[in-house]
């Protein structure tokens, strides 16, 4: 019994961090949009971490799942808005569509790319991301490169005021909920058979296979879960909060890189890592943009290199090692 509760202790600092963010955003004026950005980075990191952190596979095409999730929501809004009386149901259908589409894509990618390892996997996933984008543009699927713009439809569905508060406030709350859900799932996976199997896989995939672990099954579970959360983040941040979709923007490889940076900063494979990484990344980016406009990338790039070289296990990874054996160890994984 006791064991069951202590299992969930690490959620305490995580939830505390999110609560603090929420309080800051709500109570200090001018902070909400910053908090929204931080939540977005944390959520993106959480979703990415489920797969990368647990398996060690680098999915360079991760943003594709966010992209199809965005399209799922966008398609629901643009295609259903003329049906009267659906109202908020359209948004729910949008989320369902986002999940279905990202799951389908991740199954297709998983079936193909998960047979590969290391750099081959990374390149294959880049290929999927770019290929998918060019398919949309080339075959003019979903309005091709002209994209979809749908603030007007959103207004029509929800009414002006509701739509406006959805775009500027509730969408961010939904992202926060997604981030917390992703954290729960991460913890659940870590403490269950899946986690142990994936740890074995990360250490030595061949040995894990020999031991009789069904490596492929667990890899695919983690992959699909990660993709689903990515799709949800996309549907919220890039469709509800940003009421347009242009293919080059939602398949932009830089977001994958950002997700990698966040996970690596915080510590790959840890529960708290993406939150810590997302906060560090978002806050430093924001204040660099304010105090040194135009130079943030020039400063960021060498800093990241230094971090990779000197602190490869990330902030939480280091903390974990420090507190090993102490009472705090229960809280940090």
């Amino acid at each position: 019994m006791k064991n069951k509760i202590t299992k969930y202790y690490p959620l305490i600092p995580l939830l505390a961090a999110y609560l603090l963010l929420l309080l800051i955003g709500k109570n200090i004026s001018g902070m909400w949009q910053l908090v929204a950005m931080l939540i977005f980075y944390c959520a993106m990191g959480q979703a990415f971490n489920i797969f990368l952190g647990m398996t060690g596979y680098v999915d360079f095409g991760y943003v594709a799942f966010m992209g199809v999730g965005t399209y799922g929501m966008a398609l629901a809004i643009t295609h259903l808005s003329h049906i009267k009386g659906l109202g908020i149901l359209i948004i729910i259908i949008g989320f369902a569509l986002a999940i279905v589409m990202s799951t389908l894509l991740s199954m297709a990618v998983g079936a193909v790319a998960l047979r590969l390892r290391g750099a081959y996997f990374a390149i294959a996933t880049i290929g999927v991301n770019e290929g998918f984008r060019f398919l949309i543009e080339g075959a003019r699927i979903w309005n091709g490169s002209e994209g979809l713009i749908f603030t007007a439809q959103l207004n029509q569905i929800l009414g002006r005021e509701t739509a406006s508060s959805l775009m500027t406030f509730w969408a961010d709350i939904i992202v926060l909920i997604i981030a917390v859900l992703a954290a729960f799932v991460t913890l659940y996976y870590m403490k269950s058979k899946i986690g142990y199997a994936l740890t074995a896989l990360r250490e030595d995939e061949d040995a894990a296979k020999v031991m009789g672990i069904n490596v492929t099954k667990y890899k695919i579970i983690a992959f699909i879960t990660s993709a689903c959360f990515a799709g949800l983040v996309g549907a919220t941040s890039w469709a509800l909060k940003t009421p347009y979709v242009f293919p080059p923007e939602v398949f932009e490889i830089h977001y994958t890189i950002e997700a990698i940076i966040i996970v690596l900063l915080g510590g790959a494979g840890t529960l708290l890592g993406p939150v810590v990484g997302g906060l560090i990344y978002g806050i430093s980016k924001y204040y660099l943009a304010i105090f040194m406009p135009g130079f943030q990338l020039l400063i960021f790039a060498p800093v990241i290199i230094i971090i990779i070289v000197l602190f490869p296990e990330g902030v939480v990874g280091m903390l974990k090692r420090r507190v090993k054996g102490s009472a705090l160890a229960k809280f940090i994984i």
């Binding site: 990368l52 890189i257 990698i260 960021f300 290199i305």
Partner: peptide
């Protein structure tokens, strides 16, 4: 891989 991919990418940005 994670480290080298990110490092070379950052070198590019730099």
């Amino acid at each position: 891989e994670l480290a080298t991919l990110l490092a070379t990418f950052s070198l590019g940005i730099l």
